[in-house]
Design a binder for these strands. Sequence first.
DNA 1: GTCTATACGGTGATAGAC
DNA 2: GTCTATCACCGTATAGAC
Lengths: 208, 208
Amino acid sequence: MVEKLDKRHTGTEKIILEAARQVFIRKGFDGARMQEIADEANINKALLHYYFRSKDKLFMAIFVEVIQSFILSSVKLIQDPGHSVFDKIRLFVEKYISLIQENPYLPGFILNELNRRPDRLVGIFKSSGLELDYFFSQIEKEIREGKIKPVEPEHLLINMISMCVFPFVGKPMINTIILSYSEKDFNLFMEERKRTIPEFIINSIKKQ
Amino acid sequence: MVEKLDKRHTGTEKIILEAARQVFIRKGFDGARMQEIADEANINKALLHYYFRSKDKLFMAIFVEVIQSFILSSVKLIQDPGHSVFDKIRLFVEKYISLIQENPYLPGFILNELNRRPDRLVGIFKSSGLELDYFFSQIEKEIREGKIKPVEPEHLLINMISMCVFPFVGKPMINTIILSYSEKDFNLFMEERKRTIPEFIINSIKKQ
DNA sequence: GTCTATACGGTGATAGAC
DNA sequence: GTCTATCACCGTATAGAC
């Protein structure tokens, strides 16, 4: 608990974390091997246990880091008072898809680990302080003002997230059975979605 | 290859398959243990290897079964010539969500395994013969007839699937950080979505 | 801090009795 | 077909030299 409070990350520790990140994301917790992480970092297994006591602790270290850098960073703007709902939709979709494009395997990794060991992992970002009250009340306000049609804010939010994230998680399925896309096709498709998703949503909820 | 062509599934074999199905879906291939499957089936490990030669073969057996019963069954109606596009949207969403509600962990399992070992698994339903040509041309026809707005059929389809499936895959995240739902809340939410998703889609694409 | 060597508990798979 | 016993290996973790 108190360990490593003031100690800064050394070079080796950073290298290990980066190697662990790559291997865990590629293989998942169960599929990852300490040996593979050691190889990736060009060190030996013993050193892994020197820096992090166990596989589980090493995993938790990278998982916390991943969660915070990935989820929290991008979801802040939807609470920003400076944008209309429509603008937030456009900005969020563009930003969120771009973020995932840089780390396309992150969503699948996070969601799978969360499903596999919810008790262990869910607590991590339970205290992340993600508040959506303002966004939801903003939607209700714009409904009252006649700017957008009556719509359930929760469903709207989940719809938006679903359409951005799911294609990456379902990529192997999309590329084979659903649409028979090549890697290049898929990238183009996701690039198009930065435009079509906001269009699709706004078409649905805008007052005529 | 030729083995077991005429031999019907015995009782024991069915029990094993059912046990394997539960454990694999709960733990994934890497996390599943042959011992646990044996326990679940109330037999011993040796018998597993008697019926299926290896863990991998046992996994493939249940995976093929899962894919076929899950994916193919529900996606047929979108090629059905007897429904309008709007009706297909309503029917598909209702049917697909209901199907997943009966096996809520199936989508996460399938998607994760597919991402983890695409080379091995993707071939299984590559020859499934899922054809979407009719559905896509039907959409383009209704666009020409002025029934629905110009829309990219591929995006429409992926949007629909995303909104149905993603909430189940992202359930731990929705229930904790995004919406703070209880199990009961979540079920209610998904029940609502059978109505709100078709409404959301049709609002977006219907001609005024 | 970093290495080699090793302990030790699983884990998939097989042998062989019944 | 079903069981018990066992093997060979792998994976995490530790001991101890440098």
